[in-house]
Design a protein around this nucleic acid. Structure first.
Lengths: 192, 192
DNA sequence: ACGCTATGTCAACCGCGGTTGACTTAGCTT
DNA sequence: AAGCTAAGTCAACCGCGGTTGACATAGCGT
């Protein structure tokens, strides 16, 4: 945090830092609110001026694409453990949405993008590259293509369900939910 | 010019018919485009004036709620055949989205509503009443509550996947997809 | 120290779209 | 036929929000 000792604190004019701040805020807002969020909100959260969005990214749409790409850059190779994947996922899905959780944010972002007519067109290629291909590689084996599609669909569906549900499940309902979801995921991971 | 008939055909001023036309167009547009669609578009498609939306519904938000309720009115009791449900669904999901297909339209509507921050709040109760309860009753048996949640989530997920995918699957990929999806649905329908 | 340029600020601009109210007219009543 | 009311039309209003360009200034090179 305090690594700028010799230098006179963080430069108050740092294009790169500002750009990064805007991008970060954009990822957060696009994930939380969707494409309808305002540039003024994004800029405000980044502590920057609206006009800089235009300067650094060209416009709202370009910022969105950039944010989307950046959001899924970390997703290129999956590091999930096949043995525990299903259970962890189910537990996560049974709970409440955490906006700060990186993975959730990424996929909410994807979801917003997919369901917004303004952004859906720019998505197809990216989904292929950043979601289906990694899942396919992670799955491996026969017919990984189609199996990846099914897995991705199920995954997205549970995210939507949680989005609609809003609150965490409890008691026996939670147990049953986790158990069933785990079973679904495990069945989909299995090769045949 | 030459329509001096005795009966002037359908009344040119029919509040009820106009209202119905607007509602129908609204359901279509909200499902296809989402909440961002314009009232001018809706009114245009209905052959009515924008101002009539205000007169008959009060405003855009009220129209949306009305359209959403109306859209799911027909969904209160499900009549799917448990034996063929999974397979039919999987076949449908492997194909392309048809905007005119009633069931698809309803769920796209739901999806748009769920993922739009402007409308998500008005959705929770409706989903309970018009989606989860019917599915739960249809499923029956032990823990129908939690199982309905899982089924609904998976269902929605596949609809999103198809939305993103855009085009129909073919060949072996389609076969595998259909087979896996069918298996998932059947597993979720089964009581234990 | 002086200026140059990249960085950041500010205030408009402009179209879009929901809303509003005044106006026109069809269709019924008397 | 005259008039009244509901149904429909029209044009303007207004805020929102993305965009734009003019302006201010920090920080570096000379």
């Amino acid at each position: 945090m305090t690594e700028t000792l010799v230098r006179p604190g963080p430069r108050r004019r740092d294009a790169e830092a500002t750009r990064a701040a805007i991008l970060k805020a954009a990822k957060k807002q696009f994930a939380r609110v969707g494409y309808d969020c305002t540039l003024r909100d994004i800029a405000g959260e980044a502590g920057a001026d609206v006009a800089l969005v235009k300067r650094y990214f060209g416009g709202k749409e370009a910022l969105f694409v950039e944010a989307l790409k950046d959001s899924f850059r970390a997703n290129e190779q999956l590091d999930w453990d096949p043995a525990s994947f299903a259970g962890e996922m189910a537990e996560m899905l049974a709970g409440t949405p955490h906006a700060d959780e990186a993975r959730t944010q990424r996929f909410q972002f994807l979801l917003r993008a997919a369901t917004s007519p303004a952004t859906a067109p720019m998505l197809n290629a990216l989904v292929q590259e950043r979601l289906l291909v990694p899942i396919r590689n992670w799955l491996g084996g026969e017919d990984a293509e189609a199996r990846a599609r099914v897995l991705a669909g199920v995954y997205i569906g549970f995210l939507v369900e949680r989005l609609i549900r809003g609150e965490a499940l409890e008691g026996r309902e939670r147990e049953v939910f986790v158990e069933r979801v785990t079973a679904v995921f495990n069945a989909l991971i299995a090769e045949a």
